[in-house]
Design a protein around this nucleic acid. Structure first.
Lengths: 303, 303
DNA sequence: TTGAAAGCGTTACCAG
DNA sequence: CTGGTAACGCTTTCAA
């Protein structure tokens, strides 16, 4: 009997309907992943990891890419409609939007961001500590005049990187760094360097960029547009540790974020909240890994 | 009355349940996107475009990243369960798997792949024509000895690029190229070059790589490991036109695929099939755009 | 214009 | 252990 049913099912190409199942079980097995822009080089790695991790637990990723200048509220509303079992947000959401997820008891984990004045589930990398480490290393190697090409204003990660950098520079009693703003892309790294160089006064001996892509733009522009040798005449460092930073032409000095670990942690967190919704919010902080690379002069100065 | 209902709905944080709606309307507004590995630099751009395009039409992307060595059949079964309204596959599926989608009347579009001996809906870029164009330009500039760092065996796109290259070389009566195999990543571009150089006989004057990332690996290795000047001593070209190919250190000679147009076409195709399921399969072929770049000597030889 | 009922494909539950 | 029935939240249809 059972056999005959199975055979018929096969012939009719029967497949259980996950949607109908979700309706009654109240579990969609869907996890929304909110990402601002996938072209960031860093996020594809995150997304790929998340997708693999979730697949392992029988969860599927429902992707939401935020329109650059679109209505985030509308998109968030869409997330609710799909009754997702959880949300991972690697995008800029305002506190009200986050609060709304909590009100609806949707397991919610922030990726690489936190909220001020409130503890929410989050997986982050310690940007401030990383930035301080970077400055220490550079200062120890004799750098004295720093400049910063910062991330965009609305990036919390970028702000923290800038803040950590400035704090440590101040602590070490070095001159306040020149800060110019970028927006995380290659061109803005190039533009940042031009702005720094046209600034009157002595040029900096180290430039710290808000991410790797800007650092790469900065290195390229220094070398090819201005003929400045990196690192002997100028040190440049970035953040992230994206793949191109390891390429021979750059071999970038950078602070690598442990993407894989972080994605795994985020996925774990979502599933653990699904299974235990009353648990207290948790923030998991990972340390960035210093990659010595070759765009910064790091050996001790001897004379 | 209407007003009171709306108000109550708001207070209760009522949100329509898309899942329940799907059950009765038999439209999930979900589109499955199948991608083999997101770390390819090329696919994030595709995915990003697709997601934007679909969002505009009220469709959401359900992401399926194929495990490198996993069970594709199982993953395909999952796609069915979710009753997706359409599928875009930028991954290697066998003909049987494709046929199964058709049997279930699920709108199905292949991205950057086609099937032999069968016409299915597909959006592709003419790799063969592109490769031929590339060889023509290089030959016209005086290159005589070609080598190829090919894509992995199971990549149809890679095969076509290699085939177009070989065909044109043969037509021009030039020596048959040395072909070494890569797997699309940076390291395999480096390895490919080493293999080519240790091959006895005269070194090639042009290397055509199966994609940009390998070309970048090849250029870097030539310059930094072997001290070979590119392009004056060796020309290197790639395919794709990914963002890093435009960076100053590379300024790669490549064939850019019109990702945005292709993604838009794919999205359009899915929606048009949804609205008119009986339409005949269509293949939309885009031309690659030749990017002159600076890693290949393209000026006419004068002596 | 408003209200009630049927049905989508599944799981859960409760008799038999 | 088996079989039938209710229920999930929505849209559609039909009647009042």
């Amino acid at each position: 009997m059972r056999l005959r049913v199975m055979k018929a099912a096969d012939e009719l190409a029967y497949t259980p309907n996950a949607i109908a199942r979700s309706l009654i079980t109240r579990r969609s097995n869907l996890v929304a992943v909110l990402i601002s822009n996938l072209t960031n080089l860093y996020y594809p790695e995150v997304l790929s990891e998340l997708s693999q991790q979730f697949a392992r637990q029988g969860l599927r990723v429902l992707l939401f890419t935020l329109p650059h200048e679109g209505d985030v509220d509308k998109m968030v509303a869409q997330v609710w409609e799909y009754q997702v079992d959880g949300v991972i947000a690697a995008a800029r959401l305002n506190p009200k939007q986050v609060a709304e997820f909590e009100r609806r008891h949707i397991p919610f984990v922030l990726f690489n961001r936190t909220l001020r004045e409130r503890t929410v589930n989050a997986v982050v990398c310690d940007q401030i500590e990383g930035a301080r480490m970077l400055v220490s290393r550079l200062a120890a190697a004799g750098h004295k005049r720093f400049a910063i090409i910062s991330g965009p204003k609305d990036s919390v990660v970028g702000q923290e990187r800038t803040r950590g950098t400035r704090e440590k520079i101040a602590e070490l009693g070095l001159a306040e760094p020149l800060v110019v703003q970028g927006n995380y892309d290659y061109e803005s790294g190039a533009r940042g360097l031009r702005q720094i160089l046209q600034h009157r006064g002595r040029h900096p001996d180290a430039i710290i960029c808000g991410n790797d892509v800007m650092a790469i733009g900065c290195v390229d522009t220094a070398r090819h547009e201005f003929g400045i040798d990196v690192p002997s005449k100028l040190s440049v460092a970035g953040f992230d540790g994206v793949e191109p930073s390891t390429w021979l032409s750059y071999n970038l000095t950078t602070l690598r974020q442990p993407v894989q670990q972080m994605a795994q942690a985020a996925a774990e967190m979502v599933t653990s909240i699904i299974n235990n919704p009353s648990a207290a919010p948790e923030k998991r902080v990972f340390a960035a890994q210093f990659i010595e690379g070759g765009t910064a002069r790091l050996g001790k100065i001897t004379d």
